[in-house]
């Protein structure tokens, strides 16, 4: 009996220490560098897909880190290391700065001008606003135009009901999500649902299940349901550019499968990895892509989604107050 009591007490009191815990890095520059490197090594989801040799990056940057470095220099060095991931979803944030990678849109033509969409040819001055949507009838009231600048803006079915009631006599609808850097996936799904007739598989998602760079779960379907209350049954053109990123990339991906939708403009910026947060011993927070999302054909959309019709904003049109991409969309919708 005493033996069993001893075994039980041993199990309860001493065995907790047998669970393998990751080692905590010290709060030094070297410790914070190691912690950051390990978080990306174990949790970042695109190392293999982007053919990044993270071990060699460790070697390169380890040689430059020392505990005597100034905070700002150390922060900038970590920013340089994270830039190797070429990912707009990766940010290191401290109390004094935030690193960012913006080449996903800065290296490309803007293909958007807010001055253009607010001239009298399009939204003008008397456009309506509902739930983050700015909308008006354009092209002699034959086309409905909605500009949506952020998927962080909440909206309701009621907002959309009023908008579609107002635009119901138009031949087609333009949803302009250029320069929309993303926001909530729920809002992306909700907006897309107004253009589907039935629930459709529009993508897949996976997540890391181990520390290996390709240790992923089985893909899970992402479905876009059809709104039971409101449906736009006519043609719809979705306008995008390189700054259509993250949740906007997700929206464009969903609309690729919508029955009457066509994607017009430039390739989207991508950003299909669902970002997670973690932190370093010094309290700096790191955001990174954790769960890769795929299109309906299980292809990556991290680098962007090609439009159905590629159109660039012409500087000659721009000088005349004309948005080449909107004009092309009007033409397609009127056909």
């Amino acid at each position: 009996m005493k033996k069993y009591i001893f075994i039980l007490l041993f199990s309860v009191v001493w065995l907790p220490s047998c669970m393998n815990e990751p080692t905590m890095q010290p709060n030094t520059n070297i410790g914070n560098f190691e912690a950051l490197w390990q978080i990306i090594d174990r949790q970042y989801c695109y190392l293999d897909y982007k053919h990044i040799n993270w071990d060699s990056i460790h070697t390169v940057y380890q040689n430059e880190v020392s505990n005597s470095m100034e905070k700002f220099d150390f922060f900038d060095l970590m920013g340089d290391m994270l830039d190797e991931l070429k990912d707009g979803h990766v940010n290191l944030s401290s109390g004094f700065d935030r690193t960012r990678y913006w080449h996903w849109y800065m290296d490309y033509a803007p293909n958007f001008s807010s001055e253009l969409i607010y001239n009298d040819r399009y939204l003008g001055e008397n456009y309506r606003i509902a739930g983050g949507f700015r909308y008006a009838k354009i092209a002699n009231d034959s086309i409905g135009y909605i500009y949506f600048g952020s998927f962080s803006n909440e909206f309701s079915d009621t907002n959309m009901w009023y908008i579609m009631s107002y635009l119901k006599d138009c031949k087609g609808l333009i949803i302009d999500v250029r320069d929309n850097g993303g926001g909530s996936l729920d809002n992306s799904e909700q907006l897309a649902s107004y253009f589907f007739k039935e629930e459709t598989v529009t993508g897949y998602i996976r997540h890391k299940i181990g520390s290996g760079h390709s240790d992923f779960s089985v893909p899970v379907e992402i479905k876009t349901s059809a709104s039971k209350k409101i449906q736009w049954q006519k043609k719809v053109a979705v306008l995008c550019n390189r700054m259509s990123y993250s949740a906007t990339n997700d929206f464009v991906n969903r609309m690729k499968q919508a029955p009457n939708a066509i994607i017009v403009g430039d390739k989207t910026g991508g950003g299909s990895g669902l970002p997670f947060s973690s932190e370093l011993p010094n309290g700096w927070t790191i955001r990174f892509s954790a769960s890769p999302m795929f299109n309906a054909n299980m292809q990556q959309t991290e680098w962007g989604i090609d439009p159905d019709v590629i159109v660039d904003l012409k500087s000659t049109d721009q000088a005349k107050g004309i948005d080449t991409i909107i004009e092309q969309a009007i033409k397609i919708l009127k056909e």
Binding site: Q43, L274, S291
Partner: peptide
């Protein structure tokens, strides 16, 4: 949950 699984995937999907 798995360390990389979001609540979006767990509860919404």
């Amino acid at each position: 949950p798995n360390g990389g699984a979001s609540y979006y995937e767990i509860f919404e999907l």
